[in-house]
């Protein structure tokens, strides 16, 4: 039982982290709360499905195509949806939210809701860890979560683009004065965010079927992890994913699986009321939130 909780808790936490990473990256860099994040996650799940099943594109190539397209999508989405309303909080939220709802409900209307819509795992089969069965896909998810966090760390600390991301995040005005093109960086941050979303969808969606509602759920996951972790701090996000991931599994095992979703919602509300800066957030944000 305990091993089960630990293994599935780890898997669940990694899933949360993967889903949330893109949203938090975008918000951390450019303060854009991309409410279309969940929709992007689902959109590229379906696109991947279309590549594989309708266009019969080979698996690896389809992954590559999905990643590239999602990056381009994010970049364009910034200029289409955010650029003109940049700085007006309400409008940013509403325009990305409308974009997301539009995408998701469009797929619902198209009838992309049946069981045939599921992605194949990267590697089939399973193995035993400490006498506990775990399939390769879930193992890959854990590794990918660790890998992506490491990538993000090196990216923001050692590459020029990553450093300009951090510069904008810390002080937009100074960064602009130093000749960083804020618009381009913001667009790239949305592009990276949506590419991360598609990575998550390629890895996580094979665990079940692709459903419209999981798009809304993904948005909530991203928000919950971000809020609990205090946004823009990677250690905070890891901690938040672990906490939420394990609490969910424990609730699922000991209470009822119907209550699992309640965990995020409760977490969002409770953290914002009790600890507005999140678990590892900085003081700076407090003034902004309260």
């Amino acid at each position: 039982m305990l091993t089960g909780i630990i293994v599935y808790g780890l898997v669940n936490s990694s899933i949360l982290l993967l889903v949330a990473l893109g949203f938090c990256l975008t918000f951390g860099v450019s303060r854009i709360a991309n409410f279309a994040h969940g929709a992007i996650y689902i959109l590229f799940g379906y696109l991947m499905w279309i590549f594989l099943n309708w266009l019969k594109i080979p698996f690896l190539f389809a992954i590559l195509l999905t990643l590239v397209l999602s990056g381009i999508f994010g970049y364009v989405a910034y200029y289409v949806a955010v650029r003109r309303v940049r700085g007006i909080v309400l409008s940013e939220v509403v325009s990305t939210f409308a974009l997301g709802v539009g995408i998701l409900e469009f797929f619902r209307w198209m009838g992309f809701v049946t069981y045939e819509f599921s992605l194949p795992p990267i590697k089939k089969g399973s193995l035993y860890i400490l006498g506990f069965p775990i399939d390769y896909q879930r193992l890959i998810i854990i590794l990918a979560a660790i890998g992506l966090v490491a990538f993000l760390y090196f990216f923001t600390h050692y590459t020029k683009l990553g450093l300009s991301f951090r510069a904008i995040a810390q002080n937009e005005r100074t960064a602009i004065a130093l000749g960083i093109d804020a618009d381009r960086v913001a667009a790239l941050s949305v592009a990276f965010g949506s590419a991360f979303a598609s990575v998550a969808s390629i890895l996580v969606l094979p665990l079940g079927i692709i459903s419209i509602n999981s798009g809304y759920e993904a948005l909530l996951i991203a928000i919950a992890v971000g809020i609990v972790g205090g946004l823009e701090s990677i250690p905070g996000m890891i901690l938040a994913s672990l906490v939420l991931g394990f609490v969910q599994i424990v609730v699922g095992v000991y209470v009822s699986s119907a209550w699992v979703m309640v965990v995020y919602l409760l977490a969002i509300i409770v953290i914002l009321v009790v600890m507005p800066s999140g678990l590892l957030g900085k003081f700076k944000e407090l003034e902004e939130r309260v």
Binding site: E92, V93, I227, I268, P276
Partner: peptide, 9 residues
């Protein structure tokens, strides 16, 4: 709460 945070809630 202000801004997006209220909207989120």
């Amino acid at each position: 709460l202000k801004g997006v945070y209220f909207s989120i809630v």
